[in-house]
Measured scan of single mutants.
Amino acid sequence: KTVHVNGVQYDFDNPEQAERFAKEMAKKAGLQIQFHGDQIKIE
């Protein structure tokens, strides 16, 4: 899974790890999470 945070890309082999990371980042920055198939976007 790939997580995009403000244009920066983070790759994870483990989907659960990717989602946990995305939730942490979104919570910290007060941003929205969008799921697009294999990609998670935080903007």
Rank of each mutant, 00 (worst) to 15 (best):
F21T: 03
E16Q: 09
M25W: 01
K23T: 11
Q17Y: 06
F21Y: 05
V5A: 03
A22Y: 10
K41L: 14
M25A: 08
G37C: 15
A29K: 10
K41D: 11
N14M: 05
A29C: 15
H36S: 06
E24M: 00
Q17D: 14
T2R: 09
V3E: 03
Q32T: 14
E16H: 07
F35V: 14
G30N: 09
L31K: 04
I40A: 07
P15W: 14
Q9A: 11
A22K: 03
H36A: 11
K41V: 15
G7H: 02
A22R: 04
D38Y: 00
Q32G: 10
Q32I: 14
F21C: 10
E43G: 10
K1W: 14
F12D: 04
Q32P: 04
E24T: 01
D11L: 08
F12E: 05
Q32N: 13
I40Y: 00
N14L: 09
D13I: 05
Q39D: 13
I40Q: 06
R20P: 00
Q32K: 12
Q17R: 01
E24R: 00
H4F: 15
F35Q: 13
I33R: 00
A18Q: 01
A29T: 14
F21M: 06
A29Q: 12
A18K: 03
T2I: 10
E43K: 06
E24D: 09
I42Y: 02
R20Y: 04
A29L: 15
K28L: 13
E16S: 07
K1L: 14
Y10I: 11
E24S: 03
H36K: 02
V3T: 02
I33Y: 00
A22C: 14
K41E: 11
L31G: 08
Q9F: 07
K23W: 02
K41C: 15
G37Q: 08
V3K: 02
V3R: 02
K23E: 14
D38C: 13
G30F: 02
Q32E: 14
F21D: 08
Q9R: 14
L31A: 11
Q9T: 10
V3G: 03
Q9C: 15
I33S: 05
R20L: 10
K28I: 14
I40L: 07
T2L: 05
F35E: 13
A18Y: 06
A18L: 09
Q17N: 07
D13F: 01
N14T: 14
D38P: 06
D11P: 09
Y10D: 03
E19V: 09
V3H: 03
I33A: 01
Q32W: 00
I33W: 00
E24V: 00
G30I: 05
L31N: 12
K23Q: 13
L31E: 05
H36V: 13
K28C: 15
I40K: 03
Q32Y: 00
H4M: 14
V5T: 03
V3P: 02
D11V: 10
A26M: 10
A22Q: 07
F12T: 03
K41T: 14
G30P: 01
M25E: 10
F21L: 07
Y10P: 04
D13H: 00
Q9W: 10
Q39I: 14
Q17T: 09
V5H: 07
G37E: 14
A18D: 05
I33P: 11
I40T: 06
Q39K: 06
A22L: 12
M25K: 00
F12N: 02
R20T: 08
H36L: 14
Q32D: 14
D11K: 05
L31F: 08
N6P: 02
A29N: 12
I42G: 07
E16N: 04
A26L: 09
I40F: 01
Q17F: 08
A26T: 01
F35R: 12
Q17L: 11
A18N: 04
A26Y: 01
M25L: 11
E19D: 11
D13W: 01
Y10R: 04
H4T: 12
A29R: 06
Q39L: 12
L31C: 15
V8S: 06
K1T: 13
M25N: 04
K27H: 09
D38R: 00
K27L: 08
Q34C: 15
K27N: 11
Q17W: 08
E19G: 01
F35N: 12
R20A: 13
Q39A: 10
Q32M: 05
Q39T: 13
K23Y: 04
V5P: 02
H36G: 10
Q34L: 07
Y10N: 04
G7W: 00
Q32L: 10
E16C: 15
A22I: 13
G37K: 06
G7C: 09
V5N: 02
Y10T: 04
I33L: 09
K23L: 10
Q32F: 00
N14I: 05
E24Y: 01
D13Y: 01
K23G: 07
A29Y: 15
N6C: 15
K23V: 10
E16I: 06
I40S: 05
K23M: 07
E43N: 09
D38K: 00
K27V: 09
H36D: 15
F21E: 07
I33M: 02
G7Y: 00
H4D: 07
G30L: 02
D13G: 02
F12I: 04
R20F: 07
K28E: 11
E43T: 12
F12G: 03
D38G: 03
V8M: 08
N14F: 08
K1F: 15
K41R: 11
F12W: 02
A22D: 08
M25C: 15
K27C: 15
T2W: 00
Q17S: 12
P15V: 12
N14V: 05
F12P: 04
A29P: 11
A18P: 00
Q17H: 09
L31V: 13
A22H: 05
E19I: 14
Q17G: 05
K23F: 03
F21N: 06
V8G: 04
Y10S: 02
E24P: 00
H4R: 09
I42M: 10
I40E: 08
A22N: 03
H4P: 02
D13S: 06
Q39P: 07
M25R: 00
N6K: 07
G7N: 05
E19M: 14
I40V: 10
A29I: 13
H4I: 15
A29H: 15
K1N: 11
